[in-house]
Amino acid sequence: MTPDPSAVLFDLDGTLLDTAPDFIRCLNQLRQHHGLAPLPPEHIRRSVSNGARAMIRVGFGLEPDHPDYLEKHTAFLDLYETGVAVETRLFEGMDTLLQALEQRHIPWGIVTNKPVRFAAPLVEALGLDQRCAVLVCPDHVNQRKPHPEALILACRQLGAIPAQAVYVGDHERDIEAGRNAGMTTIAVRYGYIEAPETVDLWQADLVVDTVSDLANLLQ
């Protein structure tokens, strides 16, 4: 990895932000509405990076072709939209990491598969909108990650060369997108990973266990 990357880009859920508490709250609230007992947080947490579709699969065992799927999917998203930042926080140590990048004048941004409907209010609610140099969501591109389009767009908006930039993520598609964009990739084990033992198979350039390890790498 270059000593001073031209930019550092982060995935959102499970990498930059611990959004799981709000996903867990909303899914269990929806289950309660349907007369079902709450699920253990860890049972939900590991699937958060796969979005609302995964939440409905975990919470109700439904796939998109099921006749009841759309109603529950819509209800979940509506619940989540009204409370995207109730319990969501930066991962411990992440604010210090971001401050260090800012002090070194290294721009950082977010490239996520989370729709702008949720991502923009969330970033604003946490006061990151004035610090984040770029936010790229699926709404801004034709193809989602693992396609590299979003990462290439983010680098273009930052005036950064992808080969000199870093992408950090907690899902195999993040690493694949970063590799496809020609960026240095860092996989984080602290994220929402359904099968932790597979992380080493993602072909990331670097793997870290904690935010502290990530900060040390980016130093």
Rank of each mutant, 00 (worst) to 15 (best):
Met1Ile: 13
Asp4Phe: 14
Ser6Trp: 00
Val8Arg: 00
Val8Asn: 03
Phe10Gly: 00
Phe10Thr: 01
Leu16Tyr: 04
Arg25Leu: 11
Cys26Pro: 00
Leu27Gly: 02
His33Tyr: 06
Leu39Lys: 08
Pro40Ile: 08
His43Arg: 13
Ser47Cys: 09
Arg53Tyr: 05
Arg53Thr: 08
Ala54Phe: 10
Met55Trp: 06
Phe60Leu: 09
Pro64Leu: 12
Leu70Lys: 13
Glu71Arg: 15
Glu71Thr: 12
Lys72Phe: 05
His73Glu: 10
His73Trp: 15
Thr74Lys: 07
Ala85His: 09
Thr88Val: 13
Leu90Gln: 10
Met94Arg: 09
Asp95His: 14
Thr96Cys: 04
Thr96Val: 14
Glu102Ala: 13
Gln103Lys: 14
Ile110Glu: 05
Ile110Arg: 01
Ile110Asp: 03
Thr112Val: 01
Asn113Val: 12
Lys114Phe: 02
Lys114Pro: 06
Val116Tyr: 03
Arg117Phe: 00
Leu122Asp: 01
Val123Glu: 02
Glu124Val: 10
Glu124Phe: 02
Ala125Leu: 08
Asp129Ile: 15
Asp129Met: 09
Asp129Thr: 13
Arg131Met: 05
Arg131Pro: 03
Cys132Asp: 10
Val134Ser: 08
Cys137Tyr: 06
Pro138Val: 14
His140Ile: 09
His140Asp: 14
Val141Ala: 07
Gln143Tyr: 12
Gln143Thr: 10
Arg144Leu: 03
Pro146Val: 15
Pro148Val: 15
Gln157Leu: 11
Leu158Trp: 06
Leu158Glu: 04
Gly159Pro: 00
Gln164Met: 15
Val166Phe: 05
Arg173Gly: 03
Ile175Thr: 10
Glu176Ala: 15
Met183Cys: 08
Ile186Gln: 02
Ala187Leu: 12
Arg189Ala: 10
Gly191Glu: 03
Ile193Asp: 01
Glu194Val: 15
Asp200Pro: 02
Asp200Glu: 11
Gln203Asn: 12
Val211His: 01
Val211Ile: 09
Val211Thr: 04
Ser212Phe: 05
Asn216Met: 11
Gln219Pro: 01
